[in-house]
């Protein structure tokens, strides 16, 4: 199975410029948290979450939309909380994706072993 790469890449590093920008603009707007959520979602998608953890990834995107809408409406506290949820959802999506890929790889190897064992048993019997 092809393994989605860049799994261990820390999304925080990507945020350094955004973080600086966030600090200089309106302090109440959760720019930083929104960016973290977006990056987290991208990271999860790169790790195969669209395929292996689609429900959780979809939830992260929904929370991100809520956060963006709230931010546009000036509801910064709601926006912050939704963005935090979105980030946590995205992290979970990435973790689920990694786990399911590993488990699928394991399953594949076990099946190949079973096939080999059956073949051996067949040859021995015949």
């Amino acid at each position: 199975m092809k393994r989605v790469t860049s799994k261990r890449l820390c999304p925080l590093f990507l945020l350094a410029p955004l973080l600086a920008v966030g600090c200089t603009t309106t302090p109440d707007q959760p720019v930083q948290q929104l960016a973290r959520a977006e990056t987290g979602i991208e990271f999860a998608a790169e790790n195969g979450a669209s395929e292996f953890a689609s429900a959780t990834l979809e939830r992260a995107r929904e929370h991100l939309r809520q956060a963006q809408n709230a931010a546009e409406d000036g509801e910064y506290d709601i926006a912050l909380k939704a963005a935090e949820k979105a980030e946590a959802d995205a992290e979970l999506a990435a973790a689920q994706s990694n786990r399911r890929q590993s488990e699928a790889a394991l399953e594949e190897i076990r099946e190949s072993i079973d096939v080999l064992r059956r073949e051996i048993a067949r040859v021995r019997a015949g």
Binding site: E91, N98, R99, A105
Partner: peptide, 18 residues
């Protein structure tokens, strides 16, 4: 958020186990 992190931990452990 606590629940989500716990679930991340759970998945991470399962991944390592796999």
């Amino acid at each position: 958020l606590a629940l989500r992190h716990a679930e991340v931990a759970e998945n991470r452990i399962a991944e390592v186990y796999a």
